[in-house]
Each structure stands twice: as structure tokens, then as C-alpha cells.
């Protein structure tokens, strides 16, 4: 996009200069600023670069939106985006990343299903001269940039909200259910750490269930159904991803506990998240805005490619802006619609 803008700007400026010169009666060709030319050359240098993008899966608003934004911006900058969809299959994801490194791409962008799976391959990517950008879920390989939510912070935010609703003086049972995602994924590990740090501050809070649903709404539904049966006085259910937590919400709704059990989640802030909030299925929702994240990813790539640094030498954190959505705020422009 930046190229197009600068081109347009140059034309406009040129025309203005021409008009001014015409008015002055001179016939000299107008020259752009030295800086302008250099910037244009820098942007031009991005042309033809290949970005390889391997999320955990496509077919969900989160990765689909990332992909759509990245595609649009990459095309505008003249870069090539290669997308591989492993469809939740870790083995396939590993193979895809492995193959892409072999294809000598310039940037490898991954969403790690867990902290280990891709770590060695990402190291190899760096060694093969490719920059690595890890999206939302990081790995044990620490380079070159992380773009995504600060999940420790999200955990804290959720925890603080849970204490407000179920903590000391709330007159509730203080029973909390936690629906983890994939145990070894950073999004789960970090939210858990942040959440527990917050919850431990209040000794009336009792975590009655803490199970992993592996990002699967069905599994979350199964788990929550039995938790509700065991603990009809459950105060809150906290889920680490909106799509998954929707299953827990359905279980709570089926048990007739909607409104009595507070439901918390974090997620990408797509239209469906707002819908869930409006239907009362989520009480509060931490939004990390995947649309914005898509843009952040591309900005980070732009930066890395122009940085002049060797792949593997940087480790940048590019955290997403977090905001709360509830019945008041969680509507209209607060959520985004999937790019077609």
C-alpha cells in the first residue's frame, strides 16, 4: 500500500509543482525529494519476497482473517504469500514448514500448536536465511519476532474479572471452571499462568475444574456439562479461546444456568464473538483483534526485511492491543466481519 500511496503522492506533488512552475513560466522537470526516492527504493526492495504462512488450521475466523489481511497487504507490496493449511494436523504442519524452508522462502510465519513442535524447524529456517515470525502462539525458538496477544496479561485480566464476580464478598460459591486449550501451547500455558496468579490472590476462589479441551468446542461442551452437574453452584467458567468456550457456554445454557454462571473468554473479536456476547453466552470477552494482528504481522515482516539484520539475531515482541467486550461495547464496529 505504501508504494501506491507514495506513487500517488509523487504524482500529486508533481502536478502541483508543475502548476506552480507553469504559473512561474519556467519549463523544468520537477524532482522528488532525495528521501522520497530512497524510501521508494526501500519499498521496491520488498518486491518479489516470499512469505510462507502456516497457521494451525484455516477454516476459523482467527486464521482466516489473518490470512486475508496478510494476503491483501502482501499483494499491495508486491510480495508473494504462500499459505499452507495443516488442518489441525501437527504432523502435516511440521512437514509443511519443513518443506517451505527447503523452498528457500524469505519469511516463515507460523502459529505454533505447541512450544516444541516447530522449534527445531524454525531454528533451521533462521539458519537457512529466512526470518521467523511467530503469531499468537510462540515456540521455544526465540526469534525473530512475536506478533500477537500478551496471554499472561489476558490471563490476569480474566482473573481480575473473575475475582470481581466470584471473589470475596460476592456472595457466590467462588467455584471457577477453567477450560484450557492445548496444554503445551503458549496461549494456554501463559493464560493459565496469568489467570492463576490473579486467582491465587483471593482465597475464596476455588478452581473446581481445570481441563484441556484442545481448542475444541465439542470437548469443552462435554467437560462443562459434567462440571455443571457436579457443581450446580458454579460461579464462573473461563475459557482460553472464544470458539472453544462457545461449547462451554452451550453446556451452561443447556443446564439452564445462563446468567447464573459467568462466562469469560478471550479471542479474535470476530462477528461471532459479538453475537455470542449479545446472546448472553459470553459475559465478558478479552478481544485481541485478529484484523489488527494481520496488519501487525505484515508491518513486522516489512520491518524485518528492511532491518538489515541477520535472521535469528532479533527477538521482537509486537503485542496486540487488548480491550474488553461486553453487552455494552461488544457490538457494531467493535467486532470485524471476515474479509471475503
Amino acid at each position: 500500500m505504501s508504494i501506491r500511496i507514495s506513487q500517488r503522492l509523487a504524482v500529486v506533488l508533481g502536478a502541483a509543482a508543475f502548476a506552480a512552475a507553469g504559473a512561474a513560466g519556467a519549463a523544468e522537470t520537477p524532482q522528488p525529494s532525495k528521501g522520497g526516492v530512497e524510501l521508494q527504493q526501500k519499498a521496491e526492495a520488498l518486491r518479489g519476497k516470499t512469505i510462507a504462512w502456516v497457521p494451525v488450521t484455516l477454516g476459523f475466523p482467527l486464521a482466516d482473517e489473518w490470512t486475508a489481511v496478510m494476503k491483501q497487504e502482501a499483494e499491495a507490496a508486491g510480495m508473494k504469500l504462500v499459505v499452507r493449511d495443516p488442518g489441525w494436523n501437527a504432523t502435516a504442519q511440521l512437514q509443511a514448514v519443513s518443506a517451505l524452508i527447503g523452498d528457500k522462502v524469505d519469511v516463515v510465519v507460523v502459529q505454533n500448536p505447541n512450544v516444541q513442535l516447530l522449534a527445531k524447524e524454525l531454528k533451521r529456517a533462521n539458519e537457512n536465511g529466512a526470518f521467523v515470525v511467530q503469531v499468537n502462539m510462540a515456540s521455544n525458538h526465540r526469534a525473530d519476532a512475536f506478533v500477537g496477544a500478551n496471554f499472561i496479561r489476558i490471563g490476569q485480566m480474566l482473573g481480575e474479572e473473575v475475582i470481581k464476580a466470584c471473589g470475596k464478598g460476592s456472595g457466590t460459591s467462588g467455584k471457577v471452571q477453567i477450560v484450557q486449550g492445548e496444554l503445551t501451547a503458549t496461549a494456554s500455558l501463559d493464560q493459565m499462568a496469568g489467570l492463576m496468579a490473579a486467582l491465587n490472590k483471593d482465597d475464596t476462589i476455588k478452581v473446581v475444574s481445570d481441563q484441556a479441551a484442545g481448542w475444541d468446542a465439542n470437548k469443552a461442551l462435554d467437560i462443562t456439562s459434567s462440571v455443571i452437574q457436579q457443581h450446580p453452584d458454579l460461579c464462573a467458567s473461563v475459557g482460553f479461546w472464544g470458539i472453544m468456550q462457545a461449547g462451554a457456554a452451550q453446556a451452561i445454557k443447556a443446564a439452564g444456568k445462563l446468567g447464573k454462571v459467568k462466562i469469560y473468554a478471550s479471542g479474535e473479536g470476530s462477528r461471532s464473538d459479538c453475537d455470542m456476547i449479545q446472546q448472553g453466552l459470553f459475559d465478558k470477552f478479552v478481544n485481541y483483534n485478529a484484523k489488527q494482528q494481520g496488519h501487525d504481522i505484515m508491518q513486522t515482516i516489512n520491518f524485518l526485511l528492511q532491518s538489515g539484520q541477520k535472521p535469528g539475531s532479533l527477538y521482537i515482541a509486537n503485542f496486540s492491543e487488548l480491550n474488553w467486550l461486553d453487552k455494552e461495547t461488544g457490538k457494531g464496529d467493535a467486532c470485524w466481519d471476515l474479509k471475503k
Binding site: G59, V82, R84, G87, T91, A92, Q95, A99
Partner: peptide, 16 residues
């Protein structure tokens, strides 16, 4: 086959 489909960028469910 799986590896090839992944390389071809076939979507996950289509691969299977």
C-alpha cells in the same frame, strides 16, 4: 501423498 498435498497447499480437510 500427505506431504505432497501439504506442499501443494491443499486445505487441511481437502487433504484428508
Amino acid at each position: 501423498l500427505i506431504n505432497g498435498f501439504v506442499r501443494l497447499g491443499l486445505e487441511g480437510y481437502l487433504t484428508m
